[in-house]
Each structure stands twice: as structure tokens, then as C-alpha cells.
């Protein structure tokens, strides 16, 4: 598709979301050193395009589930930034009231309803959500994010079968960064072909460049439009790169990933690709784009500063309830 035909607004929106996620995670790196964030953080840096492309193409009412690496999905789905930051700081104003932390971000208002830190854990749950959405008779779909690591698990194949059999409106987005913690895809699967396997189960699929947010967005738009008619599952594989280590705000360890270098990955990372497009298509918008980035970074900083202040003031006052409020709850 010729970029000149793209609405300027779309590029602006995608840029805003992409930059927001990047700015938040860069800030997490800083805040981690202050020891106000205590717990594992799995950064999405390098993989944001799948989250932003798919979730910008979906509707707010579509339901999303995520994994331990959920920051990008949470923010792209419209999760509250303050709720996320307070959760990272362990405050009761966090999106999980301090019970979840980085690996379990959720926001019922944004319809991102769970993040599981057990590999492949959210995959079958997505099928039950899709079943409920289909029964509703609306055109809502469920979107489940997973990495290539989760496609090693048997439950992924069980769920593909279930979704095909029951014709569930379920979109799996497999962010294929070709690495699971430190083990490459080719060392884990004899046939590392996600889409090919899905198709043998009766689930249609396609592969896109997961570092190009526009490619992901257009693919997702077509797929979701089709799914709202057919109510059938789909697997979208986004080929991408993880630019940080599996866990923790540390740089990618050297010698991992085998066939290319970290430097070459940074040369094809999603922010770079998007900025190149913005520059070449709308050169007159460069100042506006930079101003947008400045504003976003400032507002992100403000949320972190407020969270840090509350952390310093309130941390010692937070108490577990005498008993968990098991019955005093609301449902999605």
C-alpha cells in the first residue's frame, strides 16, 4: 500500500502509542535502579509493533489476554498508565491493587482482563472468553497474545483444535522473536512453523513483519473484519526481535540469538521503521512529531514521579486485609 494514501491521523496515532510504550519502559529501567520497582519486569522493547498494530485495529469492546510480557499489550489496549505504574510500585491504587505486579497487569475498563506468567497459561482461557463472546451474538472477538516460546506447550495445540472445532472468534497473535528466555526456536522445535501447524488444525493463519506497525495494523484490520463475519479463529504470526534480556531491565546478553547481531536488530527496530516512514511521508510534520514525543515523555515522567512519591509516603501503611474479600467482588 502506498504510504501517501495513508491518513496522516493513523500514522500519528500509531506513533503516539508506540512512543508511549517505549517511553514507559525506558522509564521503568531508570526507576528499577531506585528499588521502588521490586519484582521481575519483562520489557517489550523491540516488540511493540505487534501490540500497537493489532490493538489499534481492534475495538475497545474486544477482549484481550496477555502474558508475562504484557506492558505493550496493556498500554496499547488502553489500560490506565497510572494504574500500571502504581501496580509496578506495589501500591493499592495499582490496576491489581498491588496483588499482581508487572507480570499480571489487567484493566477491566480496557477489556484486557488477565495476564498470566505461566507460559501458555492464558491461551486456553482465551478460548472460553471467545465462546462467551460468540454466545453473546455480538461481533466481539478475543485476542490472545503469546510468544513463540508458548507454542512449545501442548495446550497451544489443544486450544487450536478446540477453537477450530467450536468455531470460536479467537485471534492468536504469536510474537515470534525466535527466542525463549535464551533458547532459540530452532533448538526447541524440529519444525518451527507456527502458521503451518495452525493450518493443519483447521485454523487459518498468516505471517507479517512484526517490526512494521503499519503491516501489522493492516493485516489485523483485514483479519478482524473477516473474523467478525465468520466467528472463526485465526493465527497471526508477527516476526520480531526482543531487544532486551528475557527479564529485567538489562541489555541483551551477547552471544544469544546465533544468526545475527544485536546491532543489526536495532537497525530494524519498530520505532526506527515508523520514524523513517513519518519522515519520508510527512517531512513537514517532523517538528510536531518531536513535540508529541516530548509531551508524552513529560506526562509519563509525571505519572512515575507521583507514583514514587506515594511509594515513599505510603509503602509502610499498606496492609493485607484480615481475610481476602472473596465474595465482595464484581464480574467482567
Amino acid at each position: 500500500m502506498a504510504l501517501t494514501n495513508l491518513p496522516q491521523q493513523l500514522l500519528r496515532d500509531l506513533h503516539e502509542k508506540m512512543f508511549l510504550i517505549r517511553a514507559v519502559e525506558e522509564r521503568i529501567k531508570v526507576e528499577y535502579a531506585s528499588r521502588r520497582i521490586r519484582g521481575p519486569v519483562h520489557l517489550s522493547i523491540g516488540q511493540e509493533a505487534a501490540a500497537v498494530g493489532v490493538l489499534h485495529a481492534c475495538r475497545q469492546s474486544d477482549v484481550c489476554v496477555s502474558t508475562h510480557r504484557n506492558h505493550a499489550h496493556y498500554l496499547a489496549k488502553g489500560g490506565s498508565l497510572a494504574g500500571m505504574v502504581d501496580e509496578l510500585f506495589g501500591l493499592d491504587t495499582g490496576c491489581c491493587k498491588g496483588y499482581g505486579g508487572s507480570m499480571h497487569l489487567m484493566d477491566l475498563n480496557a477489556n484486557l482482563i488477565l495476564s498470566s506468567a505461566i507460559l501458555a497459561g492464558s491461551i486456553p482461557i482465551a478460548s472460553g472468553i471467545a465462546f462467551a463472546l460468540k454466545n453473546e451474538g455480538t461481533k466481539r472477538v478475543c485476542i490472545g497474545f503469546l510468544g513463540d516460546g508458548a507454542t512449545d506447550e501442548g495446550v497451544f495445540f489443544e486450544t487450536l483444535n478446540l477453537a477450530a472445532l467450536m468455531k470460536l472468534p479467537l485471534l492468536f497473535v504469536v510474537e515470534n522473536n525466535a527466542i525463549s528466555t535464551m533458547t532459540t526456536f530452532s533448538k526447541r522445535q524440529a519444525v518451527p512453523d507456527v502458521v503451518g501447524k495452525a493450518e493443519r488444525f483447521g485454523v487459518r493463519g498468516m505471517t507479517v513483519d512484526g517490526n512494521d506497525v503499519l503491516s501489522v495494523y493492516h493485516a489485523a484490520q483485514d483479519i478482524l473484519q473477516g473474523m467478525r463475519q465468520t466467528h472463526e479463529p485465526f493465527v497471526l504470526e508477527t516476526v520480531t526481535d526482543r531487544l532486551c534480556a528475557h527479564v529485567g531491565p538489562i541489555v541483551y546478553p551477547s552471544g544469544i540469538g546465533a544468526d545475527d547481531t544485536l546491532q543489526s536488530r536495532w537497525m530494524r527496530e519498530p520505532m526506527l521503521i515508523l520514524n523513517e516512514k513519518l519522515r519520508s511521508e510527512f517531512p513537514d510534520q517532523l517538528d510536531a512529531s518531536l513535540a508529541r514525543e516530548r509531551n508524552l515523555r513529560e506526562s509519563v515522567d509525571q505519572v512515575f514521579i507521583r507514583g514514587a512519591q506515594r511509594f515513599d509516603a505510603d509503602a509502610l501503611r499498606l496492609q493485607l486485609p484480615a481475610a481476602p474479600p472473596a465474595q465482595d467482588v464484581r464480574r467482567v
Binding site: I123, P124, A126, A132, L133, V155, E158, L162, V332
Partner: peptide
């Protein structure tokens, strides 16, 4: 597929 089916029930539960 017990593993998938338990998750299926959880997902439906989350939706009410």
C-alpha cells in the same frame, strides 16, 4: 484436552 478445557471454563467464568 483437560488442560485446555479447564482454561476454557475459566475464560467463560471471567465473562460471567
Amino acid at each position: 484436552s483437560e488442560d485446555a478445557l479447564m482454561g476454557f471454563g475459566i475464560g467463560a467464568s471471567l465473562m460471567g
